[in-house]
Simulated scan of single mutants.
Amino acid sequence: MKEFLLKPKIAIYDSLKSLLEEKKIGKEDLIITNEFVLMPQLGNEEPPCDVLYQEKFGQGEPSDEMINGMFKEMKGKTYKRIVAIGGGTIIDISKLFVFGADCEVEELYEKGAALEKKSELIILPTTCGTGSEVTNISIVEFKKKHTKLGLAIPQLFADEAALVPGMLKTLPYGVFATSSIDALVHAMESYISPEASPFSRMFGKEAIGKILNGYLEMREKGEAKLPADMEDFLIASTMAGIAFGNAGCAAVHALSYPIGGNYHVPHGKANYMVFESVFNMYKELGADLSPLEVILEGIFKCDASEVWEKMFDLLSFVLENQKLGELGVDAAKAEEMAVSVLENQQRLLGNNPIELSKEQIVEIYVRCI
C-alpha cells in the first residue's frame, strides 16, 4: 500500500509583517530566526514576541550542541506557537521546539514518537530549497557520530507553511543556487523512489519543470545571478517538499550527510557534490530512470540518451561543482564515509531505485574525488 499525506495548510503572504498581524503574533509566541533576517523585515521595530536568534548558539547547520544550547536558554518556557523564519537550519531546529525545551536533543530522537506536541508551529522558509516547511522530518548533525540523522514523526508537521516570496529577493546567489539544486534533488529522488505514487509524482514533476526551466531562462539571458522573480522557485521547493515528504529521498542525501558532518559543507552543496555520480551509478546498475528521462526529454527537447549530460551541463552553469578531493577526501575516507552511510542512513537507502553495495558507495565517493 502506498499512502499520500498532504499537510500542512499552505498560505502565501505579501510580507512578514502581514503574516504577524494576521496571525496576531504576541507575547504567548516565540519566533526562532536569525537577526539579519528578522530586523530588516520589521523595519528595526521591536518584535511582537520573544525571539531566539540561532546564530548566538553556533554557525552552520543544526547540530546537537547548538540545539541543546538553545534548549537550555528556553528551559521551562512553553509557548502557544513557534514561528520559524529561515532556511533549513532554523526550520529543523524549530520543529523540535514543539515539545518544549526541557529535554536534550538526544532524548527527543530516542523518545520523539511518544512525546506530546505542546506548541503549534508556523514555518516561513527564506530559501528555495529545504521543502521542510511541508515535511515531518528534522535533520540534525550529531557531532560524535560525524554524520546527520533524521527524525520523522507526525508531531513535526507544521500547522501552517507560510510562503513570502519577497523575502527571497535578498538571497545571496550561492545560497539560491545550492538550495534550488537541493530542491531539484528532492523532486528527482522522490520521483524514482519505490514509495512514489501518482500524487507525489505530480508534485515532483511540476517542481522539476519549474526549477529547470528557470535555470534555462537564466542561461538564455547569460546571467548566473539571482532571478528577479523568485516565486516559482519558492513554490517549486514547497512542491518538492510535498513529493519527498511522501516518497522519500535516497542515496544522494544519504551520501551527502557524512560530507556535511565531517567537512561542514552546506547541505545543498553536499548533495550537488555526489548528485551526478549517484545517478551515473544507478544507470550503470540498470535502474529504471525512464520516468525521469521522459520529463527531461520534454524540458531539453532532446533524445533520452542526451538528457543527463544536458541537465548536468545546465547545473554547472548555475553553480560550478566542487570535488571531494578539495576537501581532503581520499580513498580511505571514502571507505569510512561509506560505512557511516550504511550504518546510519538506512531510512534513506530504502528509497533507492536499486540497491547499492558498500563497494558501489565507495566507488561513487571515489569518482567525486
Score class of each variant (00 low, 15 high):
109 Y>W: 09
97 F>Y: 09
64 D>L: 02
111 K>L: 12
85 I>Q: 04
77 K>L: 08
97 F>K: 02
107 E>T: 13
84 A>E: 03
64 D>R: 10
86 G>E: 01
90 I>A: 06
58 G>W: 10
74 M>C: 10
76 G>S: 03
69 G>W: 11
67 I>F: 06
85 I>F: 11
84 A>C: 08
87 G>T: 09
104 E>Q: 12
79 Y>T: 03
63 S>G: 11
70 M>N: 02
65 E>C: 02
76 G>E: 10
95 K>A: 06
87 G>L: 13
73 E>L: 04
80 K>T: 01
59 Q>V: 11
59 Q>W: 12
67 I>H: 01
80 K>A: 05
96 L>Q: 07
76 G>T: 07
68 N>M: 05
68 N>T: 07
107 E>M: 06
99 F>T: 02
92 D>S: 08
98 V>T: 09
102 D>C: 13
85 I>H: 02
86 G>F: 02
60 G>L: 12
69 G>Q: 11
62 P>F: 03
103 C>A: 13
97 F>R: 04
60 G>Q: 12
82 I>H: 00
108 L>S: 00
65 E>R: 13
64 D>F: 05
74 M>R: 14
69 G>H: 10
72 K>L: 12
62 P>Y: 09
79 Y>N: 06
83 V>Y: 00
85 I>T: 06
109 Y>P: 13
83 V>P: 01
93 I>S: 02
91 I>Y: 04
97 F>V: 01
87 G>V: 12
92 D>N: 15
98 V>Q: 00
97 F>D: 02
77 K>Y: 05
80 K>I: 01
91 I>N: 07
60 G>W: 12
79 Y>L: 04
84 A>V: 06
94 S>L: 03
89 T>C: 13
78 T>D: 05
81 R>H: 00
61 E>N: 15
90 I>P: 03
68 N>W: 10
107 E>W: 09
107 E>K: 13
77 K>S: 08
87 G>S: 14
104 E>G: 13
63 S>C: 08
108 L>M: 11
97 F>I: 03
103 C>G: 03
83 V>R: 00
86 G>T: 02
91 I>Q: 15
65 E>V: 15
62 P>I: 05
60 G>D: 09
58 G>H: 09
73 E>G: 04
109 Y>L: 06
57 F>S: 10
100 G>F: 02
98 V>E: 00
90 I>V: 14
111 K>P: 11
78 T>P: 05
102 D>Y: 10
57 F>C: 08
108 L>K: 03
90 I>E: 05
66 M>D: 07
89 T>N: 13
103 C>K: 14
